[in-house]
Write a protein that binds this DNA or RNA. Structure first.
Lengths: 245, 245
DNA sequence: TATTTCCTTTAGATGCGTCTAAATCCTCGC
DNA sequence: GCGAGGATTTAGACGCATCTAAAGGAAATA
């Protein structure tokens, strides 16, 4: 009934709404999806007609309950696929996104069910993003600390790294900064740079923009750096984590 | 570069070409894809412009080498997906087709590689259809015996059951007629019906139309019916089999 | 407050894939 | 060898998703 493109718009609006709050601007969606503003305006009209969003002219849009449900469905497909690709087809953490984007509109409900079952109904994907439940219940979008919020001496565990830049994800993957990784903040430079010690003992410096996209929670446990984590095996979501991407 | 729809046309032309021979009629493609003849004519024009097929007006079309390569690529995706779904996601033999159709245009080369690897580079899919090799070398389309070619007393092994009717496949699956199954022909009725004994000892009667879509080879080995086969584990293609679907 | 600047929307056009209706061509039977 | 019937193609239209160019509204600044 809905086209792939419409699903993409709903997903985009949902994501922007989740991070930046309610009325979502035409230009924000245009930039997110790589379309021109008139194209977006035109699609807003169609989605409004179908009752998937509400529009206040020149102000922006907001998803209706129905529109949000569609977005959650697509997001569930996306994140289940990411988890599956990482776990069963040996995709690296940074590679999963594009493949999931390509497939998310085309899998059947049956496929969704079976993938979820094989994975043991995971609650987070390899980036630490929460996977909507099968009943597509709304997700609670609490604000979580980011690495950028912390100062020297703080010890944290990475919970989520959501970013659409594959290169950035690749870099972090190589640096050993993944969901589940423990980090010690060893320096905060005044010009927008955070330096952390990873579990392996290496030090990594990250620009603020990157640090701001790394969600963390305070670490409680042993001090020194052992060999605790791996890539994406925390698939039961026991880190008290929250939505956004 | 090519749209999903174009790929579908090329695949359809390839399939028809493989079974019914060279110039493929507009109407044949129209029926195969559920489109009207003018729509097909129009698409033939576009595919010709791109050098993917050759057209003789009012006669029909034939794929160029390039067009055939595209068709083989799509078919490789399709059949690898079918094999993967059956083997790793617990799909039944009759369910795989539709899901593979939906996904075949959207998987990356990387995905293709990894699926092939996980499956151990299978040469046939769960229906017994040959999977094009990674280099997309042309497939040799020999004619194989069908169940309908055989008479009372013949003992055969099913090599391929290619059909687009899900219900028919479901029926055969329940009847225990699958690639690898041994069958004894016990009766051939004059009004278009073949009766076979399956490995389990059950007798099944099948109309000629169905018998004609079941490819077989003569059975050489022990007589009686044991418990040899399963559903789709003959994925190395050791049955000397041939193309069509 | 007036103006400038930026954002959004309207207007109009394009390419794709599809359709129906009508014209054209091929072939088979007489 | 001619005509009838069936297949194919042309003609013309439509909906979708997109664009560029131009017009209109909102908000910030002077």
């Amino acid at each position: 009934m809905l086209s792939d493109v419409m699903e993409d718009y709903l997903k985009a609006i949902y994501q922007i709404q989740s991070t930046s709050g309610a009325p979502v601007a035409t230009s924000a969606v245009a930039e997110y999806l790589g379309k021109t503003p008139p194209t977006v305006t035109s699609m807003f009209g169609k989605l409004e007609e179908r009752g998937l969003l509400e529009r206040e002219k020149y102000k922006g849009v907001e998803l209706t309950e129905e529109g949000e449900t569609v977005a959650l469905e697509v997001l569930r497909h996306h994140r289940l696929l990411e988890a599956y690709l990482a776990e069963h087809l040996d995709y690296s953490w940074s590679e999963v996104h594009d493949e999931a984007d390509a497939l998310e509109h085309h899998i059947s409900e049956e496929f969704e069910r079976r993938v979820a079952e094989v994975l043991g109904n995971p609650t987070v994907d390899p980036h630490g993003d929460p996977i909507p439940t099968a009943d597509l219940a709304p997700i609670d979008h609490e604000e979580a600390d980011t690495l950028g919020d912390h100062g020297v001496g703080d010890r944290v565990v990475v919970t989520r790294v959501s970013d659409r830049e594959e290169e950035e994800l690749e870099y972090l993957e190589n640096a050993g900064v993944l969901p589940g990784t423990r980090l010690d903040v060893v320096d905060v430079a005044p010009f927008g740079m955070v330096t952390v010690r990873t579990e392996g003992g290496d030090e990594q410096s990250l620009p603020d923009s990157v640090a701001a996209s790394i969600r963390v929670r305070p670490f409680e446990g042993d001090p020194a750096g052992g060999e605790t984590n791996g890539t994406g095996d925390d698939s039961d979501g026991s880190n008290g984590e929250v939505p956004t991407t």
